[in-house]
Structures are given as structure tokens and as C-alpha cells.
Design a binder for these strands. Structure first.
Lengths: 106, 106
DNA sequence: CTTATATGCAGGTATTTACCTGCATGTAAA
DNA sequence: TTTACATGCAGGTAAATACCTGCATATAAG
């Protein structure tokens, strides 16, 4: 996985919306995904390309259509790297802050 | 939580590095965090401000120093919203793609 | 009080990004 | 084969972003 591509892909609200739409109905065509998006088709296409580069979306051509499928794997990898690690230390991280604040209060 | 601020904050490699450094040693000063960063102090400061705005980092002033602490809570919220949801559907999402590919092969 | 240190504030610039428009290509249907 | 439809390709622009430099302020130390 390329951390950077995944995080950058998730950094845009339109792309997160596209993932949500694919979650609701997987395998949609480009045209379907662009509907009601409030931007030109080409703009949405570029967002989908970024999602594809990050491996968050895979595509298959069926005739003249392009079908889009979510790939959840990179999300799990983000979890492993960026959430589980912090979970492990639990809230001890916040505890450090609390201790410092108490020191101030004295 | 503000989804957008958190994702945008995580989208930059320098900011992810800063979080890693704070994970290693919580409560560091601005000066400590800037060391060996290969950019001007002011640039790093701006990154830390973005992390603060996203609530991923909290700060306390101690005399003339500014101490930085990780706040892992927004990461857990990202997990809830963006990983657990997809985990729930498991790999059925990938299965959709596999089925489509098999259809092509026929 | 003077000096050194840690951080804050205010621009300025080059790159990246998120849009757009216009046209080309490939596939399906009439 | 002609027409309609879904997508691809190639720039072009405005705004956001990641840097920078220079100077101001506030605290600690001598």
C-alpha cells in the first residue's frame, strides 16, 4: 500500500462521497456516479482516477461502460497503521496532557 | 469531529511524521519537533497548527515553551466512520468485482 | 537590565489541485 | 452504416497548499 496515495485520496470530500455512493451500490458506471454531483463529468472522472491510483477503487470495462468497485483493503491497512497503533497505547496519550495541565494548576 | 479537517491533516507526509514523533515521545516542544525536519521552523509550525485544528494534537504553554500532545480520539472516529463500516460488509465488496470479472471471462 | 532562547506574526512565491471546456474515440442500437 | 451514447484525452485557469524570509514578542538566564 502507498500510505500517501490513500490519505491524499481520502482528503477530498467529493472522493469520500464517491466511496459512499459505491458503498451503497457497488459496480456503478461512470455516468451513474457522476449524476447529481454538481460538477462536470470530467472532474468526477479525475477524482475516480485518484481513487483508482490509491487502489481504493477497481474498474472493469463492460462494453462501452466502465464499472467501479470499492476495494476496502487499503482502508484496513490504514487502520492497522494509524488506529490500532494508537489504540494500543489507549488513552495514556491523553493522560500525558492531563498530567501537564495539573502541573500548571499547582 | 470534522471529517474533512482530520483527513486533510493526515494527507501530508510531514504531518504524519510529526504524529509519529509525538507517538514516540509525547509532550515535545515546538523546537524539538522541528529538529531534523529539513524545513524551516515556521513551515513545521504551520503543519502543527493544521494538526491542532483537526484536534489531532493539543498544546499547553509552559513558560516560553509550547508542549505538544497527541489526541488519538479523531483517529478512532475515522475508524468508526471509514473502516468499521466497510469491515461490516467484509470482502463482499471485492466479491462483486470478482463476479463481474468471471462474467467477462465467459 | 541585558542577552539569549522559544515562539508568534505577516507577508511573498512556486507548486499542486480541483475545476473547466472542447474534441476524439470506441461501442451499441436503429 | 448512420446515429446515439459512454468514456478518453488534452490543455487551460483559479484557488489552495507548502514552502520561504524577516521581524516582533515574550520568557528565562546571566
Amino acid at each position: 500500500m502507498n500510505d500517501d496515495l490513500v490519505f491524499k485520496a481520502l482528503a477530498d470530500p467529493t472522493r469520500r462521497l464517491l466511496l459512499d455512493r459505491l458503498y451503497e451500490k457497488n459496480g456503478q458506471t461512470l455516468g451513474q456516479l457522476c449524476e447529481n454531483l454538481d460538477m462536470a463529468r470530467q472532474s468526477a472522472t479525475q477524482h475516480l482516477e485518484i481513487l483508482e491510483d490509491a487502489n481504493l477503487v477497481s474498474t472493469v470495462k463492460r462494453g462501452r461502460e466502465k464499472l467501479h468497485f470499492i476495494n476496502p483493503v487499503p482502508l484496513f491497512e490504514v487502520y492497522e497503521r494509524w488506529v490500532r497503533k494508537f489504540e494500543h497505547r489507549g488513552l495514556s496519550l491523553l493522560h500525558d496532557l492531563k498530567k501537564e495541565l495539573e502541573k500548571d494548576a499547582k
